[in-house]
């Protein structure tokens, strides 16, 4: 990795493109959450066509506007991902970035197929849950791609100083644990949302994930506060976690408690659940970012030269 990164050049257009893809993907996640929250997943009964056509736009009313709107945005993100993979292959010096670009294209194809399966199989919970998990994984990768393409990342490659990461449970592993914890919550939450799992695992998981994320965030701030990317990701995770817990409580109250007899999804139910999904996606992306920054900036003491082994204080 280090030999190829030396030749990497900051490309502002490419960086802006990765950011644009990340924003579009975030909007796509919101659009997907709107489909589920409005019970509109099967408003268009066929796939890959919509009402028998690949290109004709159906009347955008009722559930169709959510489902077909989601499909159109997904196609656009798919197209952007193809451009990203080709652009990265042609212009990017870092081989692992080129591989990442192709992997993202593979992931978006898998995601499209999972979306099709949800329609063909009429929303089995495990397919819908897999669709939700791949969506957030893909979004996290678009965020990472944006970070890897940034001037700050590329510019700091040569001057990067790695810091010792001592302890039985290293901060790098703790950061990885945050990713796993959010994935666990994503699985339990999506499984509950799509009718396959009881609510209980998601509640217990919220407690476990909160402990891990708070622990990692405070470790990041207190132990590695002078490493800006780690401090930034840690603070963001703490803030997002608080918002996410409030939204989770709000979604529970509006949907499960107040909305149990609702004849149709109410705006309050839709707003809280969609926001819960969206903030969950941001949280996962930041946990990925924390892990990446931890592995980039920290190393076991044994791997560092004496010059690098300086004390790190907040």
């Amino acid at each position: 990795m280090s030999s190829s990164t030396q030749t990497a050049q900051y490309n502002p257009a490419y960086h802006r493109f990765t950011l644009f893809l990340a924003i579009c993907t975030f909007l796509l996640i919101v659009a997907g959450a709107l489909v589920t929250s409005n019970d509109a997943g099967l408003a268009v009964p066929d796939w890959p066509t919509s009402f028998g056509s690949l290109y004709r736009i159906p009347p955008m009313v009722g559930g169709i506007k959510y489902e077909h709107g989601h499909r159109m945005l997904a196609e656009f993100v798919g197209l952007l991902t193809i451009i990203l993979a080709v652009w990265t292959q042609r212009k990017e010096a870092r081989s692992w970035m080129r591989k990442l670009g192709w992997f993202m294209l593979l992931l978006v194809i898998i995601q499209g197929l999972l979306g099709g399966l949800t329609v063909k199989m009429r929303l089995p919970w495990y397919v819908s849950t897999a669709h939700a998990m791949v969506a957030q994984t893909f979004f996290s990768l678009t965020i990472l791609m944006t970070v890897f393409a940034s001037r700050r990342w590329i510019g700091s490659t040569v001057t990067l100083t790695r810091h010792p990461d001592p302890g039985a449970l290293s901060f790098r592993n703790l950061a990885l644990l945050t990713v796993l914890a959010v994935y666990m919550q994503l699985f339990f939450g999506a499984g509950f949302r799509h009718g396959g799992l009881h609510f209980f695992p998601h509640v217990v998981g919220a407690g476990i994930a909160t402990v891990i994320l708070v622990w990692a965030s405070f470790s990041g701030i207190l132990r590695f506060g002078n490493i800006k990317p780690i401090r930034g990701a840690s603070i963001a995770i703490l803030g997002l976690l608080v918002i996410q817990l409030l939204l989770g409580f709000g979604a529970y109250m509006t949907r499960v408690v107040w909305g149990k007899d609702a004849v149709q999804p109410r705006p309050s139910m839709v707003a809280t659940t969609v926001a819960h999904v969206a903030v969950g996606a941001l949280l996962l992306a930041h946990c990925f970012m924390l892990a990446v920054q931890a592995y980039r900036n920290l190393a076991p003491a044994a791997e560092l030269s004496p010059a690098d082994q300086k004390a790190v204080v907040a």
Binding site: N38, D39, A40, G41, L42, A43, V61, G62, G63, I64, E67, V263, Q264, P265
Partner: peptide
């Protein structure tokens, strides 16, 4: 039996 275009229809 549900209409996903009009979610109140069940």
């Amino acid at each position: 039996v549900q209409c996903n275009n009009h979610p109140w229809m069940k």
